[in-house]
C-alpha cells in the first residue's frame, strides 16, 4: 500500500486526532491531485470561519481545484427537494416548524446530512478529499450512516443510507487515510481509530500516515537515566535529541503491531504565509513520492 493507491479512489477521507495536521494534508492532497489533472473537491465540514456552503476555487493556478465548506442546513434542503420532486410540497415541508425543529435537533441527522452531501457530490468530481473532524466526532459521522440505516427500516432515507455505506465500504471507490504524529498519544488513538473503522468498513482497510517526522539523530541512548528524569527540556539540543529518540520508540508501537505507514517529514515552516507554503511543499513532496 502506498499513497498512490489511496489517491486513485474517488472519495478520500483524511481521519485522525485533533492537531495532527489533517486540514493542511487534505489541502495538499487536493492540490496534488488537481495538479495531476483530476477535477478535485477539497471538502471541510462547517468551518465557522468560512461562509456556510461556500464553494470556491482557492488557487488561480489550479483550474481543477475546488474547495467546499459543507453545511448541514442547505444540504438538508437540497436533499428534501430531491426526494420530494413537487416544489410546492417540498417547500411546505421545509417551511413547517416541526420539520425545521426536527432537522436541527434530532440527533445524528446533522452528521448524516453532511456526509450525505459529500456522497452525493462524488459523481461530479474525479476526486473528493474530505477533511474529517477529529477522531470522536469523525467516527460519529460514519456511525450515523449505520444508525440511520437501522433506525429507518424502510423508505428512501433507509435506502440512501445503505447505498452510502456500500460506497464507504468499497475499496475501489473509497480510501481512508489515518493521520498521526510520531507521538505516543496520537499513535495510540490512531490505532484505536483503525479498529473502529475496521468494524464499520471491514473490507476497506485504512492506511496510516505519520506526519511531521522529526529528523533522525543517532546520538543519544536511554542509558543515562538522570538525563531523562525531567520531562521539561534543558536546551534546544536536549529537546532535539530526546525528540528523535522517543519518536523512534513511538513508531515501534506501529511496527510491533505489523501496521505499515507512510512518513511525511517535518517541513520547516516559513515565517509568513506558513499554511499556504506548507500546502505547496507538501503537495510537491506527495508528487515526488508517487511519481
Amino acid at each position: 500500500m502506498s499513497f498512490q493507491s489511496v489517491f486513485e479512489k474517488n472519495l478520500i477521507f483524511i481521519n485522525g486526532k485533533g492537531g495532527v495536521g489533517k486540514t493542511l494534508l487534505a489541502r495538499a492532497v487536493s492540490h496534488h491531485l488537481a495538479s495531476q489533472g483530476f477535477k478535485t473537491l477539497n471538502a471541510v465540514f462547517e468551518d465557522p470561519l468560512r461562509e456556510p456552503g461556500e464553494l470556491i476555487q482557492p488557487d488561480p493556478s489550479l483550474p481543477k481545484l475546488w474547495s467546499f465548506n459543507c453545511e448541514a442546513h442547505s444540504a438538508f434542503e437540497e436533499y428534501i427537494q430531491q426526494k420530494i420532486p413537487l416544489p410546492h410540497v417540498s417547500r411546505l415541508f421545509l417551511k413547517n416548524k416541526l420539520i425545521r425543529y426536527l432537522s436541527k435537533a434530532a440527533p445524528g441527522i446533522h452528521e448524516l446530512v453532511l456526509l450525505g452531501k459529500i456522497w452525493f457530490e462524488r459523481t461530479h468530481y474525479d476526486r473528493i478529499v474530505v477533511d474529517m473532524p477529529s477522531t470522536g466526532y469523525g467516527l460519529t459521522m460514519f456511525q450515523s450512516v449505520v444508525n440511520f440505516g437501522k433506525l429507518f427500516q424502510s423508505g428512501p432515507i433507509h435506502k440512501d443510507a445503505e447505498l452510502m455505506l456500500e460506497t464507504l465500504r468499497d475499496p475501489k471507490q473509497t480510501g481512508h487515510l489515518l493521520v498521526t504524529l510520531p507521538e505516543e498519544m496520537p499513535i495510540r488513538e490512531a490505532i484505536d481509530l483503525q479498529g473502529y473503522l475496521q468494524k464499520l468498513f471491514p473490507e476497506n482497510h485504512s492506511q496510516f500516515v505519520v506526519n511531521k517526522k522529526f529528523p533522525h539523530l543517532e546520538t543519544l541512548t536511554r542509558q543515562e537515566d538522570s538525563l531523562w528524569k525531567n520531562p521539561v527540556p534543558k536546551s534546544l539540543l536536549d529537546y532535539a535529541l530526546k525528540k528523535s529518540h522517543t519518536e523512534a520508540e513511538h513508531l515501534q508501537l506501529l511496527r510491533e503491531r505489523g501496521k505499515n505507514f507512510q512518513e511525511i517529514p517535518y517541513i520547516p515552516p516559513t515565517l509568513h504565509n506558513a499554511p499556504e507554503n506548507l500546502v505547496r511543499d507538501l503537495a510537491s513532496y506527495l508528487k515526488e513520492g508517487t511519481s
Binding site: K83, I84, F93, I99, F152, Q153, S154, G155, P156, I157
Partner: peptide, 8 residues
C-alpha cells in the same frame, strides 16, 4: 411526508 421518507 416524513413517514414516507423514514418508514413507519
Amino acid at each position: 411526508i416524513l413517514e414516507k421518507l423514514t418508514g413507519s
